[in-house]
Write a protein that binds this DNA or RNA. Sequence first.
DNA 1: CTGTTAGCGCGTTCAT
DNA 2: ATGAACGCGCTAACAG
Lengths: 336, 336
Amino acid sequence: MKKKITIKEIAKILMVSVSTVSKAMNDSPEISEKTKKKVKELAKFYGYVPNHIAVSLKNQSTFNIGVIIPDIQNSFLAEVLKNIEVHAKKNGYRIITFFTGEKLKEERESLNILSNGMVEGIIVCPSEETFVERQFEHFKNIAETTPIVTFDRLHKELNFNSVSVDDDQSILKACDHFQSTDAKNILFVSSIGWLSVGKTRRRTFTGFIENNTSVTGETIEEHDLDELRKKIEARITDDSQPNIDAILGADIESTSIASASISRNKLKFIDEISLIGYVNKKQNELQFPRVSYINQYPEKVGEKAVELLISNLKQDQKKITQEIIKTEIVKKDTSK
Amino acid sequence: MKKKITIKEIAKILMVSVSTVSKAMNDSPEISEKTKKKVKELAKFYGYVPNHIAVSLKNQSTFNIGVIIPDIQNSFLAEVLKNIEVHAKKNGYRIITFFTGEKLKEERESLNILSNGMVEGIIVCPSEETFVERQFEHFKNIAETTPIVTFDRLHKELNFNSVSVDDDQSILKACDHFQSTDAKNILFVSSIGWLSVGKTRRRTFTGFIENNTSVTGETIEEHDLDELRKKIEARITDDSQPNIDAILGADIESTSIASASISRNKLKFIDEISLIGYVNKKQNELQFPRVSYINQYPEKVGEKAVELLISNLKQDQKKITQEIIKTEIVKKDTSK
DNA sequence: CTGTTAGCGCGTTCAT
DNA sequence: ATGAACGCGCTAACAG
């Protein structure tokens, strides 16, 4: 493998000083056009490019942004990540991505590594285990020296700039929508009951049911997806119990399973049973039926996260901004 | 924002030299236990961690691997990426990810940035535009100083270690499977006719048809997904033409659309029409029907790519390894 | 216009 | 057992 050429070697070849080369490469007005041309030609010839590590050390700035997310397979997170990358690039930043697999230990390590001067700020979606274990110290420690923006998942201990989605509102909107289209008995299905966001969504749902006399509600929570499918199918085909005329999916998986269960048992969407939930948007457009869904606007989340971080980078701000993205019910084929 | 503490400041506080602190932190046998303890305690107290940029510059090694992929929304690429990250981490490397959006310009820029000392090697899935424009010089230039491993997409000009999937074989396997289950007229659908991999898949299909008298074949290629859907639906419901009894999807999108089209028009899977194609595996498991698919084993691709790169990093190897991952038809609900 | 020098943070001889 | 000095590649303040 050929060694990369440095400024020093170019200087030697041209019999000038390293600073002349450096200035020429950076188009300093101090250098004559003739010299600039000579230097640049040779640089191009040897494929010279400034060593980013050295520049970072010298300038004390890396133009890297760290991103930590629990799972790339989650289509919402993947879409947020993509938009983070796009907007970071637009602002001249690169991203360094770590995946935690929802593990606290991985999260701690990622934060440590990234804060060692590798990046100027960190955008992070805290892992589930972090919430379960209620461990937030590692965030606070890092935040003393490195700006942090969190997204998607909130906690009162996480006192940073953040972008999240109005989860309560979206569940309520779906419930309201069902109620206004005359649903009588809503089934809430979830494969993320163990996850904090799953708990919030369930609580919001049960709260709605308790405060409304015109609708009743039931809940199926099951982490094992195949079990979940069985339970849902058993319930919606059970004639001995009150009829389910609407299903609310608390996450992408349970919504998919609910849709498949309805199709497999040949129930008629809308006429017999409606469905609203969370989906993989891109995939949903191609399917039949396309499920009516709660749009969480991952593009906005990603863009806003970058925006908050960069403004924080540019000036040491004191006030914390907790941005909340409004969600929206998008009607497709499975609901009125 | 608090400034990060350096070795220098710790040295000053402890009234020792920087080299003593450095050695103590790295458990050098030259340093007494007493001093080590003193240094480490203070370091911990101040949350000291060595500056990664400085260490990288000093050691001329970053322990970073660059990854360049066209699109994170592609579930195959996303799964490969995830596995690259996992295996990189397992070997003590971090990954820096860039997305090209299938653009040549973005690919060039990404390669340039990454090869400026940021990473020790690069794993890249070349963008589509690169193939269309037949531009491979930028790879060759970078490869002189930085080890490169390509994956998924091959070209004879790309003379690097690579991991790919036996695309021809997988299409042939699907065709064979249809033939052996008595399909008479196979429809090949594709939304990626413009993509090199799409062309290969189509050629393989038409080649199969030409060499087999017992089956006939048709092709629908359409980049606009809604148009594609219309064309597929029109064709499979057109009684004036020969009956289509099998569909082969050339990519995830067209396969999804084909499945949805069949469902929407209430054709019976297997009895009336079969379907095999590429899918988002995770999503496919939750759907009804689950589409019979070609498994490309993204886990293996990711793992192998990291393996090839790291072995290349460890010793300057001369022989090029072009790994090919065997695919497999996985029978689900849409085919015999 | 060009060169010399210092220093970013760290690890590593080589002295002491 | 500890410290002084150098250099990784680069930029910038200061001289000339």
